[in-house]
């Protein structure tokens, strides 16, 4: 079994998990929740094995490096981080219904990585600019942050759906009733943003330190850096609005969604739509 087979299986396992989570939500089959969780865990194990294999394979090819060096590998790590983060939430908040709004992100990331034409899956050696220990620190911190923001976005969507449902159908039983209270979802969104903000800050800082050690400028306003700062501003606004102005509920849910659009653009849009220094990641 090689890494690409393992990661292929992972993609389908996450698809299955997503379908299960959504089905459980729709059919209110709370008891079946455990199956969705087990499938997700299986996917995570396949994926962890796949990432490890890919690492080993790169050594076999004679230029070993951590699998964090291009768009494909980063999408895989992104999906991995989303699932780890989600499972943590599931345990912490003891609610499996949240999965329908988190695991599909992991599936989409894997599916995009596997099937998009513009992304190569080849394992290639590191060009000189990427040969740095900061690569691992920078990419890992950024992607833990991005994963948290993906989950925050999912929870934001969930919040808005449930809030709308409660306004419309007062008293009626609905699909979304088995979900946690709005208050709890709101709390999850806030905590997840806090967590992501910490990692995004660390990601920006490790990136700056790396840039300084590679070419002597910790900040050069290249589009990727600038977009990460824009994202940082969005979440800083969300935290201040909440902490000082008491924003909660729908407004924070919207900010979680807007913030994630900014994340996607930083991560992905910049590579394909704008030009800049960050050759890293563009196919």
């Amino acid at each position: 079994m090689n890494s690409s087979q393992l990661l292929g299986i992972t993609t389908f396992t996450y698809l299955a998990a997503s379908v299960l989570y959504i089905a459980i939500l729709i059919f209110k089959a709370r008891k079946m929740g455990i199956i969705a969780t087990l499938v997700t865990i299986a996917g995570l194990l396949f994926q962890t094995a796949g990432i490890t294999m890919r690492w080993v394979e790169s050594y076999r090819m004679g230029f070993g490096h951590a699998p964090l060096s291009n768009m494909y590998e980063s999408l895989v790590v992104f999906a991995w981080a989303i699932v780890v983060f989600y499972l943590f939430l599931e345990v912490k908040f003891k609610n499996r219904m949240l999965g329908a709004f988190a695991v599909p992100f992991a599936f989409l990331s894997m599916a995009y990585a596997s099937f998009a034409k513009e992304i190569t899956q080849q394992i290639s050696p590191l060009v000189p600019a990427l040969q740095s220990n900061w690569l691992i620190a920078h990419v890992c911190t950024c992607f833990i942050g991005y994963a948290a923001f993906a989950v925050a976005c999912g929870m934001g969507i969930l919040y808005l759906l449930k809030a709308r449902h409660e306004e419309r159908a007062v008293g009626k039983e609905g699909i979304l009733d088995s979900l946690p209270d709005l208050k709890i979802i709101d709390d999850i969104i806030y905590k997840t943003i806090v967590f992501g903000f910490l990692w995004l800050s660390t990601g920006i800082i490790t990136g700056a330190v790396w840039a300084n050690s590679a070419w002597g400028t910790y900040w050069s306003w290249d589009p990727k850096e600038t977009w990460s700062l824009i994202t940082w501003f969005v979440y800083a606004s969300a935290l201040h609005a909440r902490f000082v102005r008491g924003w909660a509920g729908k407004r924070i849910a919207w900010l979680a969604i807007i913030g994630f659009f900014s994340v996607i653009f930083t991560y992905y849009g910049v590579n394909f739509l704008l030009s800049g220094l960050h050759s890293y990641g563009s196919r």
């Binding site: 306003w221 589009p223 600038t226 977009w227 700062l229 824009i230 501003f233 969005v234 800083a236 606004s237 201040h240 609005a241 000082v244 102005r245 910049v270 704008l274 030009s275 800049g276």
Partner: peptide, 24 residues
């Protein structure tokens, strides 16, 4: 005021976007 910070964050974000769209 925090409104001023939110406003400044917002304008900085928009301006930064402009800077990434129009080549520098």
């Amino acid at each position: 005021s925090i409104q001023l910070s939110l406003f400044t964050f917002f304008v900085l974000a928009i301006a930064s976007i402009v800077g990434t769209i129009i080549e520098q």
